[in-house]
Design a binder for these strands. Structure first.
Lengths: 184, 184
DNA sequence: CCCGTCATGTAATGGGTTACATGATTGC
DNA sequence: GCAATCATGTAACCCATTACATGACGGG
């Protein structure tokens, strides 16, 4: 089971849901995949070229009125096959999410408790914002895009985000109370 | 707020808790920080050299009987100051954890439901293993290392791991049931 | 005799971000 | 006049992993 580059499949997958230009792929990633995947232009454009070279996609130039020219990519049969093949491959090992807050907490004997408290509050606030963003997107999909074929799967990934974010928020709350009790 | 390399502070911090060689730093990371940070030898040894060059640590060669020679690093006053300074800096933006399972789920319209079910089961099993590992370490710290000055902070980071992992397990369970109901 | 532990290190490679370059149109 | 949106692309850089090289000792 050699290391495969998953990012190429992310792009391949996006070609199947109506994102056909580098620009629209980037947009979709930033709005819908951004809680579990992100890609920069520096990867997208070279990768689209690579997919075309591999025969996984075709390219066509389009001139547009009032807008810059664009290149439309279409996934090929070979591309669809590669995507499906990747989809059924077993998931590799669980990854480790680097977490700056936890790293700082780990060494927080060297820091005063108010500062720790401050970090926790700040982090919790960011988590709550994230939670609300996810909840908003879920609501939007449930109402406006409920007939979309892919919608049920999108909801599932959002549920993951909601659930784990809520758990992190709860942990923040508990930890704040815990360290306050120690001080008081 | 320029991008700072956090890994150097991870190593700096480990120098304050009795890990004084590249080898022991690696061990500590693999057993205690591995749920939120990991570093390879390819980073550790060059970074230790860099820290010494910066004046954040001192090096001394030790010959050992029955064991290979080793280099012991000690954090300096300047190093401690740098660590404390980093600790009180605000946390940067929340990071995105790349998640292969979610990426595959997102495009799972192109996959048969049994395969999805299989992925979920597999993932849940791995999460449960992870949960048990964390619980074991927490238990060990609570009983054997409870007088260690850093212990309370270590417990806090483990609580985070336990809580978010449990949430992910719950999500797996729910999602499995949901997709089974759809099939049936 | 081989494996695990202790111990240090480098080179090649991979994966990704950031900054930059270019440029038209629409709306405030 | 300025900012935002649409649109494509590259070069420099950074961070990190993997594989490799070396080698002694103790236990089974």
């Amino acid at each position: 089971m050699s290391k495969e580059n998953h990012t190429q499949y992310a792009i391949l997958g996006l070609l199947t849901i109506g994102c056909n230009t580098g620009y629209s792929i980037k947009q979709m990633i930033d709005t819908s995949l951004n809680h579990f995947w992100k890609i920069s232009y520096g990867q997208i454009y070279p990768m689209l070229k690579l997919l075309a070279d591999k025969g996984y996609a075709t390219v066509e130039d389009f001139a547009q009125e009032g807008k810059p020219d664009k290149k439309e990519y279409q996934i090929t049969a070979a591309g669809t096959q590669a995507l499906k093949n990747w989809l059924k491959q077993p998931i590799s090992e669980l990854t480790v999410e680097k977490n700056e807050l936890l790293l700082k907490l780990f060494f927080s004997r060297h820091q005063d408790p108010q500062s720790v408290q401050h970090h926790l509050e700040n982090y919790q606030k960011k988590l709550e914002e994230r939670y609300n963003t996810y909840a908003g997107i879920k609501e939007m999909i449930s109402t406006q895009l409920k007939d979309e074929e892919d919608a049920p799967f999108w909801i599932i990934t959002l549920n993951y985000g909601l659930k784990t974010t809520q758990a992190a928020i709860d942990w923040c709350q508990e930890t704040k109370e815990l360290s306050l009790k120690k001080e008081g």
